[in-house]
Design a protein around this nucleic acid. Structure first.
Length: 450
RNA sequence: GGCCACGUGGCGGAAUGGUUACGCAGAGGAUUGCAAAUCCUUUUAUUCCAGUUCGAUUCUGGACGUGGCCUCCA
């Protein structure tokens, strides 16, 4: 397989990826709503699309891929959170955005080409809303503007839903202002104290789906290659994006490929804020390293569910420890053979199995394989910190001082010489407790931070 | 209720119409003062039923089970 294949949610089939323009391959991924600290579920989407970005870069070249990931900094959840936390909206969004950026860095995600904010694009959203009204695809009612779903015939194609079923199964109270229960809001009025912008329909703020349509068009064009996000965004978010963009653009083509990642689960249940079963990225990367979290997130194929638990993390942590013994700054220039496994719908587990093979061969002294191993690790965002830096990180978790360690090791060596193995073993056990790994190799004591 | 995904060894997790995934754990061996690390060898699996087929874990149908979407969510 030398072509990239992706499962397209539009068709539910694995398809060969053909970009519209090989000199500018375009990827849009839904970014965070900055109202609370990002959790491991958010991290999965982040890492999955980072890997896709890296694959595209490897295939088409760094300068020929445009990756846009938005930041949603206006939303009802943000307003609510700022009231609960009693801090201003701008302080809240600023601090959460900072935290998000920190998490991205810890997870070794590349910076997207562009990271637009919703609040910088309100004018564009008003403009789009106006056009949709002109086209009779939207209507104003008491300061609200709704998109009329009936104006888009293909509504429901992405999420595999037919509008009649949706109406029948409606579980939410429908606003009386809507002509059709499926219609969704493009613009809504803001209370005096809530953030708002002046518009032809009064002071208000945009609905959620509109920003992605406006920003993707601005930075990637009316028709672009890949749109990604979590499985839970398919309906209604992405369905609504498609509807409003297609009607606005007067086409039936928006993103050509829709890629959706599966959920992170806890005890088989979706990790989500509303269920309260979340682990923040900050906590996860504190306890383990960012790389361990990253490798764990890639241990299942992106569409499959991924259960988050200690066993997973400790296993990946062990793997990375092992692998780091073959860390090298000498990296092969060639694309490794196993890259093909990534091309096959990002089959990261299969790719990782090849990393194990390459590791074994490099350990046996095969220098080419070692270079290839190092290249292959970097390709999915591993080995981004040197072995020394990683050791430093581990050192920070150990309380005992280096001098103390060295002196204890000296004591142990003397005890060994004297044949006092009981004492020597005791010292080794003690150091082990402190987080120091001791091994005797060829008569020498080798020690490492665990 | 509608729609979707999934069900592989002790665990995680790929693949495949007939041949070892891989990792962790377990067992045996080499090595070691004993360990650790490493290396070698090795045990264990395709939810159930029916069909198609020379042959199905893989394709088709059904049953059961799990999870998800239908409301904010990555």
């Amino acid at each position: 397989m030398n072509n990239l294949h992706l499962t397209n949610s539009l068709t539910n089939k694995k398809e060969i990826f053909n970009p519209i323009n090989k000199d500018n391959v375009t990827l849009y991924a839904c970014g965070p709503t900055v109202y609370d600290n990002p959790h491991v579920g958010n991290a999965r989407a982040l890492v999955v699309f980072d890997v896709l970005f890296r694959i595209l870069i490897e295939l088409y070249g760094e300068k020929k891929v445009s990756y846009v990931r938005n930041i949603t900094d206006i939303d009802d959840k943000i307003i609510e959170a700022s009231k609960i936390k009693k801090i201003s909206i701008s302080d809240l969004t600023k601090s959460v955005t900072e935290k998000f950026h920190k998490d991205c860095k810890v997870l070794f995600c590349l910076n997207p080409t562009k990271e637009p904010k919703a609040t910088d694009h309100v004018a564009g959203m008003i403009n789009t809303t106006n056009k949709l009204i002109e086209k009779n695809a939207a209507y104003e009612k008491e300061g609200h503007v709704f998109f009329a779903v009936a104006s888009f015939k293909k509504y429901g194609k992405l999420s595999n839903k037919n509008p009649d079923d949706l109406k029948a199964g409606a579980r939410v109270e429908v606003s009386k202002l809507k002509k059709d229960p499926l219609d969704f809001v493009l613009w809504k009025p803001s209370d005096k104290n809530d953030p708002g912008w002046d518009s032809p329909w009064g002071r208000g703020r945009p609905g959620w789906h509109l920003e992605c349509s406006v920003m993707s068009e601005k930075y990637l064009g009316k028709n672009f290659d890949i749109h990604g996000g979590g499985l839970d965004l398919i309906f209604p978010h992405h369905e609504n994006e498609i509807a409003q963009s297609c009607v606005y653009n007067g086409t039936d083509k928006f993103a050509n490929y829709w890629v959706h990642n599966g959920f992170v689960t806890m005890n088989k249940e979706k990790m989500s804020k509303s269920l309260g079963n979340i682990t923040t990225i900050e906590d996860a990367t504190k306890k383990y390293t960012g790389q361990v979290v990253r490798l764990s997130l890639l241990s299942a194929q992106y569409k499959q569910p991924l259960d988050w638990n200690n066993e997973l993390l400790t296993e990946q942590s062990k793997t990375l420890d092992k692998w780091y013994s073959m860390y090298s700054s000498e990296v092969s220039e060639k694309t490794p053979n196993c890259f093909n496994d990534l091309l096959d719908d990002m089959n990261t587990p299969l790719y990782i199995s090849k990393l194990h093979e390459l590791f074994q061969e490099s350990q046996k002294g095969n220098k080419d394989k070692k270079k290839e191993f190092n290249k292959a690790c970097r390709l999915i965002g591993l080995f981004n910190e040197s072995a020394e830096k990683r050791a430093e990180y581990k050192k920070s978790k150990v309380k005992i001082s280096k001098d103390n360690i060295l002196s204890k090791i000296k004591d142990r060596e003397e005890a060994k010489k004297a044949g006092n193995y009981k004492l020597a073993d005791q010292i080794r056990d003690d150091l082990n407790e402190e987080g120091i790994d001791i091994k005797d190799e060829k008569g020498k004591t080798i020690w490492n931070y665990k």
